Deep mutational scan, measured.
Amino acid sequence: AKPPKTVTVKVEVTNADGETQTRTVTLTNLPKDLKPGDTVTLPETGQTARIVEITP
């Protein structure tokens, strides 16, 4: 079996106070056609994050 493909992405997350924070997260099994501006759900927090940058 192939190991899951991990991708490092820079995302913007809005916290409970309405502040936008930029975080770098490593995600696995992202859709192939994901692009900056799309939103993903962070598995560890369940927060919705907007992708700023994808590092191949």
Rank of each mutant, 00 (worst) to 15 (best):
A1L: 10
A1P: 13
A1R: 05
A1C: 11
A1V: 12
A1Y: 04
A1M: 11
A1I: 12
K2M: 15
K2H: 15
K2C: 13
P3A: 10
P4G: 14
P4W: 00
P4F: 01
P4S: 13
P4N: 12
P4Y: 00
P4T: 08
K5D: 15
K5Q: 13
K5Y: 15
K5M: 15
T6M: 11
T6R: 10
T6D: 07
T6P: 12
T6L: 12
T6C: 10
T6H: 14
V7R: 06
V7W: 07
V7K: 05
V7I: 10
V7S: 06
V7H: 09
V7E: 03
T8L: 10
T8G: 03
T8S: 10
T8V: 12
T8P: 02
V9W: 00
V9K: 00
V9R: 00
V9E: 00
V9P: 00
K10D: 02
K10T: 13
K10Y: 05
K10A: 04
K10H: 05
K10V: 14
K10P: 00
K10N: 04
K10Q: 06
V11D: 00
V11H: 00
V11M: 05
E12Y: 03
E12V: 12
E12S: 09
V13K: 01
V13D: 01
V13H: 03
V13M: 09
V13Y: 14
V13C: 05
V13P: 00
T14M: 14
T14K: 12
T14Q: 10
T14S: 07
T14R: 10
T14C: 07
T14V: 15
T14H: 07
N15A: 11
N15T: 13
N15P: 02
N15Y: 09
N15W: 06
N15E: 07
N15L: 12
A16I: 10
D17I: 08
D17A: 13
D17R: 12
D17P: 03
D17V: 09
G18M: 03
G18T: 01
G18N: 04
G18P: 01
G18Q: 03
G18H: 03
G18I: 01
G18K: 02
G18S: 03
E19D: 09
E19R: 11
E19W: 05
E19F: 11
E19P: 03
E19Y: 09
E19V: 14
T20G: 03
T20A: 07
T20S: 08
T20R: 11
Q21R: 08
Q21T: 13
Q21D: 07
Q21N: 08
Q21F: 08
Q21P: 01
T22I: 15
T22N: 05
T22K: 05
T22E: 08
T22M: 12
T22A: 06
T22L: 11
T22D: 03
T22Q: 09
R23K: 13
R23L: 15
R23D: 04
R23F: 14
R23P: 01
T24C: 07
T24L: 11
T24E: 13
T24R: 03
V25Q: 01
V25P: 00
V25W: 01
V25M: 03
V25C: 04
T26W: 02
T26N: 13
T26F: 03
T26K: 10
T26R: 10
L27N: 06
L27Y: 02
L27A: 08
L27E: 05
L27R: 03
L27I: 15
L27D: 07
T28H: 07
T28S: 11
T28D: 14
T28I: 12
N29A: 06
N29P: 13
N29H: 10
N29T: 10
N29I: 04
L30T: 11
L30M: 13
L30H: 11
L30E: 14
L30A: 15
L30Y: 15
L30K: 02
P31V: 13
P31H: 13
P31K: 07
P31G: 15
P31T: 15
P31M: 13
P31I: 11
P31R: 05
P31N: 11
P31W: 11
K32W: 03
K32R: 05
K32Y: 04
K32Q: 14
K32D: 15
K32N: 15
K32M: 13
D33M: 08
D33V: 07
D33T: 09
D33F: 08
D33L: 08
D33E: 14
D33C: 11
D33R: 04
D33A: 08
L34P: 09
L34R: 02
L34Y: 07
L34D: 00
L34C: 07
K35M: 10
K35V: 07
K35L: 09
K35C: 07
K35P: 00
K35N: 08
K35S: 07
K35Q: 11
K35T: 05
P36V: 14
P36F: 05
P36H: 04
P36Y: 06
P36R: 05
P36E: 09
P36W: 04
P36T: 08
G37K: 01
G37V: 00
G37M: 02
G37E: 01
G37A: 01
G37P: 00
G37S: 01
G37Y: 02
D38Q: 05
D38W: 03
D38I: 03
D38E: 05
D38M: 09
D38C: 04
D38T: 04
D38Y: 04
D38H: 04
D38V: 04
T39V: 12
T39G: 03
T39I: 13
T39N: 08
T39Q: 11
T39D: 05
T39F: 14
V40N: 00
V40E: 00
V40R: 00
T41V: 15
T41I: 13
T41Y: 12
T41Q: 08
T41F: 11
T41A: 06
T41N: 09
T41D: 06
T41R: 10
T41G: 03
T41K: 09
L42V: 05
L42F: 06
L42N: 03
L42Q: 01
L42G: 01
L42S: 01
L42W: 05
P43Q: 07
P43W: 05
P43L: 07
P43V: 07
P43E: 08
P43M: 07
P43Y: 03
P43A: 07
P43G: 07
E44I: 10
E44R: 06
E44M: 09
E44P: 06
E44A: 09
E44V: 09
T45E: 04
T45C: 05
T45Y: 05
T45S: 09
G46W: 01
G46C: 05
G46A: 05
G46V: 02
G46S: 04
G46E: 04
Q47D: 08
Q47K: 05
Q47A: 07
Q47I: 08
Q47T: 08
Q47V: 09
Q47E: 14
T48Y: 02
T48L: 13
T48F: 04
T48C: 08
T48Q: 14
T48I: 12
T48E: 10
A49Y: 01
A49N: 00
A49P: 00
A49D: 00
A49V: 11
A49C: 04
R50L: 10
R50W: 02
R50N: 04
R50C: 04
R50A: 03
R50E: 04
I51E: 00
I51G: 00
I51D: 00
I51H: 00
I51Q: 00
I51P: 00
V52Y: 00
V52H: 02
V52N: 01
V52G: 00
V52L: 14
V52I: 14
V52A: 03
V52F: 01
V52T: 05
E53G: 07
E53C: 09
E53S: 12
E53K: 05
E53R: 05
E53P: 01
E53H: 06
E53T: 08
I54S: 02
I54K: 01
I54T: 03
I54F: 08
I54R: 02
I54Q: 02
I54V: 09
T55P: 08
T55V: 14
T55R: 11
T55C: 12
T55W: 13
T55H: 12
P56C: 10
P56K: 10
P56N: 13
P56R: 09
P56W: 04
